[in-house]
Design a protein around this nucleic acid. Sequence first.
DNA 1: ATGAAAGCGCTAACAT
DNA 2: ATGTTAGCGCTTTCAT
Lengths: 336, 336
Amino acid sequence: MVKITDVARHAGVSPSTVSYALSGKRPISEETRRRVEDSARALGYRPHAGARALASSRSNVLALVVPLRTGIHVPVVMQFAVSVVTAARDHDVLLVTQEEGEEGLRRVADTALVDALIVMDVQLHDPRLPLLRTLDRPSVMIGFPLEAEGLTCIDLDFRAAGERCVEHLAQLGHRVVALVGSPPQVYVRGTAFAQRVVQGFTAAADRAGIASAVHPCGTTPAEARRVAERLLSEQPALTGVVVHNEAALEPLVDAFEELGLRVPGDLSVTAICPDRLASTLRVPVTSVALPSAEVGERAVELLMRKLGGEAVPEATLLPPTLTRRASTAPRTVDPR
Amino acid sequence: MVKITDVARHAGVSPSTVSYALSGKRPISEETRRRVEDSARALGYRPHAGARALASSRSNVLALVVPLRTGIHVPVVMQFAVSVVTAARDHDVLLVTQEEGEEGLRRVADTALVDALIVMDVQLHDPRLPLLRTLDRPSVMIGFPLEAEGLTCIDLDFRAAGERCVEHLAQLGHRVVALVGSPPQVYVRGTAFAQRVVQGFTAAADRAGIASAVHPCGTTPAEARRVAERLLSEQPALTGVVVHNEAALEPLVDAFEELGLRVPGDLSVTAICPDRLASTLRVPVTSVALPSAEVGERAVELLMRKLGGEAVPEATLLPPTLTRRASTAPRTVDPR
DNA sequence: ATGAAAGCGCTAACAT
DNA sequence: ATGTTAGCGCTTTCAT
């Protein structure tokens, strides 16, 4: 293994000069820098990560804590992970599963394996909050707990997303709408984003003076079909549906059509889901995108600023963007 | 930060005794061990990862190199990643994207950030092979290159999987079969597993004396439909289909039915895909599972043995398991 | 069974 | 602008 002293000798300078020349942490004459860089390249020098971490108390590694639980759409997690890896230019990314729990966080943080953490899928009453507050490493959470005092959170503004969908339907003249939401257990464990969609959905419907109902929904086609039937029997005048459930979206639309309802002819459907999904369905669905990539980038950016000692806002809400596609249309005067 | 000397003082022993007591790397009296463990717990001692890596030249971190390219089914990658994290008990997992290329591998390996590497999505002529051979850290590849001399590979036996599907169809009396494969670019870049399926499929069909054809297929519903049409026009007597393309499976079955063919009444369909997908389709599909979890576990196990200096087989092929579901049936005497 | 002490390779004060 | 040097916290010989 070639080490810094080897490079120093080869370049005819001291080890510290090599360190500074390569890190740029103090001014080095143009000529010396070139010599050092040439020597480093010639010898194939790679600083030892552990030694560097020990001496500088910086590992240049971030932890990414990913959820693996029911009701979480896997591609979203993956896309997010990729965007974090990509955005974290000079940091590597350590994958921590949520199953490792608080112990996992403590392990990577307290051993100084990582400099900072990104925590996905934060619950309203997340048991990890106290720990994240006392950890001596900065963190950014994807999602909002009930009490975020002293923490840093970022996410799509799900409340606004719910509102946006209803407003879109209301503008098209729909007067009776329903929300098909996440699986029941998602609400039970208090996932903030799911509840915020409900709030936004309901508030916007009330404000527009239109009738609304909320239905949790499982992730299998069979459950989607059951929900579709319940929807129509409970709200016979229904003409607008908001879907916040990636897995159920396609089977739901299928179920509607099997039940004799054309989309968007009889029923307008909007969703909150990745664009990729909404645009590839048989009937492309009007949707508010889950901006995984943007959330990832911004999360890393916030983390870097915190690592730099900068103060950052506790909450960052990304505004929703609704893209019109083929699944929504003005309400017909005589529906059914 | 509490360090090993703090624990040593608290327990009334030397730092080396603490190290040995906690690592078990040399015999320690029962009583001393207890005292050390108690002190460590009382003080909340966590060994500094960097210091440990520097002193022991072991980081206890594995690199997982994941593909992000077209034609790769994301949930499979994610599930695999999770199984690696889970199986790698005492190692953490660093996520490296394939886009970082050879430089990425070199960075994490040469800086001693990781002890070993798991490389997914290996190509037949993978440019990383020479590097992996010369790297001073062990690696395991998921997938088989053409020339694996000196390397360690593991994967589902895709050739056998292709054979298995054909044999199943042949047993049911089908005499004309087709393989719907991966997107063309997957073959173009020489992804071994895709080609092996083709080989197995073709060989088994020839052996059984039945007619066969192979059709690459894109990942969009439109492309799936186009392929379905081509299939039927080119092989009018077709009654058995093998699908090796996660994204195309569902739209393909839909397309068949829209074209007036019942599954399995007119057309028997088998797939090579995750069980999770095969079993949740409208018509549950007879399939050979992609055992992501098992591949992950076995890969980690191989890596651990290599880290322990043990010799391991160059190639590990996991035998395919076919699960019968609703999509295959005996050929009817008078098809169409 | 335990202790003393020498590094592991790097960074960052502290010189000059 | 560059060099000297003292650690960073741990593991692991080498002693006893």
